[in-house]
Design a binder for these strands. Structure first.
Lengths: 231, 231
DNA sequence: GGATAGATTTCGCGA
DNA sequence: TCGCGAAGTCTATCC
C-alpha cells in the first residue's frame, strides 16, 4: 500500500469520460495496482478510481504537460477492458508506503438471509395456522424466499426484503405467475414481507392482490434469543 | 485529511454488526470527521467506514483492552442514527496530515441523460418518419424517457438505458400499461433502447412485443458534433 | 424532506 | 465465467 498526497489533475475514460481539475488530493495505490483518488469529503467513494486487475505505469510528461507544470504522469490501464485512468502530478506533498499483508476479512451479521431464517422459524407471523413448506422454494426463474400453507391449506409465496420497493413486488409477481401454473399449488397467494415498505410498492402490491407484512427485526431476533434460551 | 497506518481491530454496529480482527490497515480521516478503513486490496469500497455527519472521539482503552495491547480507542458516532464505529489501535506505524482544501469536483460525460438528449435529436434512429413528441413524458408513475410518433402516427414509448437489463423492460411495461389506457395515445408500442442489451432482457422484451434498439453512443455523438458544425 | 432511479455501482452466491 | 439479487449501498433529482 502506498499513499501519496499530491497536487494533480485526473482523467478517466472508459464506460464514461470524467475529468478532475488540478487540486490537492490523496492517491491510494494498493498492492494489486488499483488506484483510488480521494478528496477531503464526500463519502467512502473516491472521486475517481481504477479497479483491479490493472497496471500502473509512471511516465514522463509530454512537453505540453511539462510546460503546464506536470512533473510525472501515472497511467493506470485496466487489464481486460479499455478503461484508463491518467493522473498528472504537479507536486508531491507526501509519499508513504507500508506493508499491510493480507487482511483477515470481515465478519457480518444481520442481512436479508437472517430475516428469512427468522421468518421461517416464526412463520405464524403471517397469520395463525400458517405452516412452512420450505425456504428457497425452486421455480424455473429462481427460488421463492418462502413457500407456506395458510390455515386452510392454501399455498402462500413470500418475498422478503429489508426495504420493500417496486422491484420486489415485480419479482414476486413473476414467481406467482409461474407457481399458479402448477395445479398442485394453485391458487397461490402472495405476501410481500419487509422491514419497511415504500408507498408505491404498497400500492402496486394492493393492485395485484398481494398482502404486505411488516417485519420487526428486533422483535423477531428477540423471539429467536428467547427460544434459544429455552432449549 | 489525516492518514494513519496502524495495527487495529474494528467493530461496526448499526444497520448490521461487523467485526474486523487485528491487522495492519490504513485509516483515512476526512475533514468532515468521516472515517474509512482500507486494506491492501478489494475495490474502492473500504472494509468499514462511517459516513458524515459523524464525530470522531479518541479515548483511553479499558483495562481489558490495555491488557490486550490496545493503545487508544477511536469511537466514531453517527450524528443522526445510532451507527457506531469503534477502532482499537494497537500500534501506529504512520500518521500523516495534509490540508487538501475544497475539491473543485468532477466533470462527467456520457450518462443516460446525454443518450436521451441525443436520441431525441436523432429520433429517426427509431426508424424513418419517426417524430419526437417530447422527452420525459409524464405519467402517474413517473416520466417516460421519450414519447414519439412513427411514420403512421402511432404512439411509441421509449425507455433508454446505458445497459439494458430486465428491470428496464419491467419499467417500460408499466409505462405502456398506463399509456395504453389513454384513448388519445393507444395503441402505444414500446421501444427499449440501450448501448447494450442483456440476453434475458431481450427475451423478456420480445415476449412483450417490445422492440429493442441498440444505440451507438460514439456515432450519435459524432452526428451531434457534425450537426453542431453545420450551424 | 421524502421518494425514486441511476451508478465507472461493488459484492457475493449459485449455476 | 456469467447472471442475478443485495448493499451499512451512495447520490442526484424531483416533487
Amino acid at each position: 500500500m502506498r499513499v501519496v498526497i499530491a497536487r494533480c489533475s485526473v482523467d478517466y475514460s472508459g464506460r464514461l469520460d470524467a475529468h478532475l481539475p488540478l487540486a490537492t488530493r490523496v492517491l491510494m495505490v494498493k498492492a494489486d495496482g488499483s488506484v483510488l483518488v480521494h478528496s477531503d469529503g464526500g463519502s467512502y467513494k473516491p472521486l475517481n478510481w481504477m479497479s483491479p486487475p490493472c497496471k500502473l505505469t509512471v511516465g514522463e510528461p509530454s512537453d505540453a504537460d511539462r510546460d503546464a507544470g506536470v512533473g510525472q504522469v501515472w497511467t493506470v490501464q485496466h487489464a481486460k477492458t479499455d478503461d484508463k485512468l491518467v493522473v498528472r502530478i504537479h507536486e508531491i506533498l507526501g509519499d508513504h508506503s507500508a506493508d499491510l499483508g493480507v487482511d483477515p476479512g470481515l465478519v457480518k451479521d444481520g442481512v436479508e438471509a437472517h430475516l428469512q431464517k427468522l421468518l421461517a422459524e416464526q412463520i405464524e407471523l403471517l397469520g395463525p395456522g400458517h405452516q412452512l413448506v420450505r425456504r428457497e422454494y425452486p421455480t424455473a426463474i429462481g427460488p421463492v424466499d418462502i413457500l407456506a400453507r395458510d390455515r386452510d391449506g392454501g399455498a402462500v409465496a413470500v418475498e422478503i426484503k429489508r426495504r420493500g420497493e417496486i422491484d420486489g413486488v415485480e419479482q414476486l409477481t413473476r414467481y406467482l405467475e409461474l407457481l399458479n401454473r402448477d395445479p398442485h399449488l394453485a391458487p397461490v397467494r402472495g405476501v410481500f414481507a419487509a422491514q419497511e415498505i415504500k408507498p408505491q410498492a404498497r400500492v402496486l402490491a394492493a393492485d395485484r392482490d398481494i398482502r404486505c407484512v411488516i417485519l420487526d427485526y428486533d422483535a423477531m431476533r428477540g423471539m429467536d434469543d428467547a427460544e434459544s434460551r429455552l432449549f
